[in-house]
Write a protein that binds this DNA or RNA. Structure first.
Length: 158
DNA sequence: GCCAACGTTGGC
DNA sequence: GCCAACGTTGGC
């Protein structure tokens, strides 16, 4: 059972600041349209799992906060919204193709940048650092979670 | 089930 | 904007 995850968000869409400004610092993780990432949310995540909140496709990609899985899995409403960029006309309404979870930010941190992650000899096991990895959600080993928390000077919560 | 074409991700 | 590395699609 995996306990920890790294989840990528584009800050232009949902930044850690946006999440903190939301009620209960919680956002629905909409828009995942990759089966492997969906399966992690649908099959493996549990409420309370730790999340490294990562900013991608921005000036300084990196881990910018700690969060937790805050809900069970449920259908992503944007798949049925014809006005949404995440609309999926092929998703059967009676059997939704795309699922999500809510994510609650627990600690905003400084930006532990991608460059720093790559340069850290203790973090080379991170799945997201593997060459060619594009998954928006990847599992994180407990040991790597603790290392990241230490680098962030953050409490080893969640 | 194969696989070529196409689309996407995401760092740079 | 480039492009490597994937994932998805659809014809066969």
């Amino acid at each position: 059972m995996t306990r920890y995850w790294l989840m990528k968000a584009e800050p232009a869409e949902v930044s850690v600041d946006d999440a903190l400004a939301a009620p209960n610092a919680t956002v629905a993780w909409t828009g995942v349209r990759n089966y492997q990432a969906r399966n992690f949310m649908r099959d493996a995540m549990r409420i309370g799992d730790g999340v490294l909140f990562y900013h991608s496709s921005c000036a300084e990609p990196g881990i910018v906060g700690l969060a937790r899985v805050a809900s069970d899995t449920y259908p992503d409403p944007t798949q049925f919204d014809a006005g949404s960029p995440y609309y999926d006309p092929k998703s059967p309404p009676d059997k939704p193709r795309w699922q999500l979870v809510d994510v609650q930010v627990t600690h905003q941190t400084h930006n532990l940048t991608l460059a720093e992650l790559r340069a850290d000899p203790d973090l080379q096991g991170l799945a997201m650092l593997k060459r060619g990895n594009r998954l928006s959600i990847t599992p994180v080993e407990a040991q790597d979670w603790r290392t990241v928390c230490a680098r962030l000077g953050a409490p080893d919560a969640a």
